[in-house]
Design a protein around this nucleic acid. Sequence first.
DNA 1: GATACACCTTTACGCAACGTCAATGTCAAT
DNA 2: ATTGACATTGACGTTGCGTAAAGGTGTATC
Lengths: 254, 254
Amino acid sequence: MEYTVQKLASLAGISTRTLRYYDEIGILKPARINSSGYRIYGQAEVDRLQQILFYRELGVSLDQIKEIVTDPSFDGAAALMEHRQKLLEKREQLDLLIANVEKTIAMTEGRFKMSNKEKFEGFKKKMIDENEKKYGKEVRAKYGDDVVNQSNAKVMNMSEEQYQEVTALAEEIKTILAAAMKTGNPAGELAQKAADLHKRWLTYYWKDYSKEAHAGLAQMYVDDERFKAYYDKDQPGTAEFLRDAIEIYTGIKK
Amino acid sequence: MEYTVQKLASLAGISTRTLRYYDEIGILKPARINSSGYRIYGQAEVDRLQQILFYRELGVSLDQIKEIVTDPSFDGAAALMEHRQKLLEKREQLDLLIANVEKTIAMTEGRFKMSNKEKFEGFKKKMIDENEKKYGKEVRAKYGDDVVNQSNAKVMNMSEEQYQEVTALAEEIKTILAAAMKTGNPAGELAQKAADLHKRWLTYYWKDYSKEAHAGLAQMYVDDERFKAYYDKDQPGTAEFLRDAIEIYTGIKK
DNA sequence: GATACACCTTTACGCAACGTCAATGTCAAT
DNA sequence: ATTGACATTGACGTTGCGTAAAGGTGTATC
C-alpha cells in the first residue's frame, strides 16, 4: 500500500504540513519521490509515523523522538524514565503555581490590598536579589552559605508588619546616626542608641546574634568600599563612626 | 531613584533583553529617554515591573499581563480565576501524560514487546480512521451513529490476540473465497464456509448480529464500488459471489 | 480539448518570549 | 588617548507547526 501526503495525513490524523515538516527535519522521509515530485510513503513509513506519534503524544520533543526512532540501539526506556522525571517536576511547578494563584485570589478582598501585597512580595525578593548580587560572594565566603541562606529565608518569611518595622528601623538608625555624628562622640548617648538600634535591626536578618559578629560586621562597613560608600554618602566618616560606636557598645575592639 | 536598563535588570533579576522586549511590546516603557538614547526608569516603572513579574511568575501570558497592568479597570481577580482554571486543566493533562508514560514504562519488559504494542495500538487506530474516512458517511447514514461508534469502540477494546485473530480470519476468508470461486457454486460447501467465516469476522465489529444486516452488508459489497473493487481485485465477480453465498447462508434474498 | 477541481509542490512569514551575536555609540577612569 | 564597562538598534534562532501564495499535476466532466 502506498500513500501520498494527504492519504497518510488523514490516516494518521495529522496535517500534510506536519508530514512535510517531518520530512524537512529528517525524522520521517518518504519511501520515494515520484516523477512529479510527489512524496510517496510505504508501509515502513506508516509504522515509523505510528511510533513518532506515539512518543509525541507522551510530550517528547521531536528532537528526542528523532534519536529514539533513528538510533535502533537507543534506550527508549531510559529516555522515557527521564521524560517522566521532567513531567513530574513540571507538575510540581504547576502545583506551586496553582497554590500561589489560589492564595492570591483568596487574598483579593478588594484590589487595593492585593496590590500592596504584590509590591511587598516583590520588594522582599528585590532586596535579597540586590544583596546577593552586590555582596553575595564575599558575605557567603565570610559567613558561609548556611548563614546567608537562613538570613534570606528569614526575610522571605517576614510579615508585612515586620518588613515595615525593619525598614523604619533602618531609617531611624540613619537619622540618629546623623545626629550622633554631630556630637563627634561614639561613646555618647546618641551613638550608643544607634548601635543598639543597629543590633535590633540585625536580629531581623540574623538567626543568631553575637557581639563578635556584630563588631565584625561594623569593621566590614569600613573595609568594604560599597558599604562605606553607603554610610558615608551624606557624611564622610560615618562608617568609621558607626564602627567605633559598635565596638564600644559590644565591648569588642578588633 | 533612577535606573538604567542594567540596574533595573539586576535589581529585578531579569535580563536587559527582557526590558528592551517589554519596551518593544509596550508593557513597560521607560519613564524617559536621555540625550544619549538610554532608557531611564523611575520608581513608577519599578513598581509596574514588580507587578508584571508577579503575574509572569504565575504563568500568565504577557498579552494578558498587558491588559491587567494597562487597564486599571481590568478585573484582575476574574483573570486569575480563569487562569487558575487553565492551570487545573493543564495539570489534568499532565497527570494523564504521566500515567501513560508510566504505563508504557511498566510494559517495557524488553524493548520488543513495547514496540509491538505501539504498532498494534497504531494499527487499530489506523484501521478505524481509514474506515471512517472511506465509508464513514455512508455507513453512518445507513446504520446510524450508535452502531458505528460501538463498532469502533469494540475495535479499540480488542486485545492483541483478538486483533490478530480477526486479521487472520480476514485472510482465511480471502483464501477460501478464492477456492470457492473456482467451484462457481455459491451454495457449495466452500462458499458456505466462507459465508460462515464472514459472519464470525463480522461479530468482531458488530455488537449485535442479524441475518438481515449480514445480507444487507453483502449487497452493499456489490453496490459500493470501493467494496466491490476490494473483493474483485484478484477475481472479478467475487463480490457478487460472496453476496450470493451469504444470501443463501442467511436464507435472505433481497 | 477545454475546463473544473482536487491534490501536489516549494517558499516563506507568523506565533511567544526572549537568547545571542554583531556593529556601533557613550561614559568614566586611567 | 585609550581602555573597559555599559548603552543602543538590528536581526537571526528557538519549537512545531498554521497559513497563505504561486504554481504544477491528475482525473473527471462537458
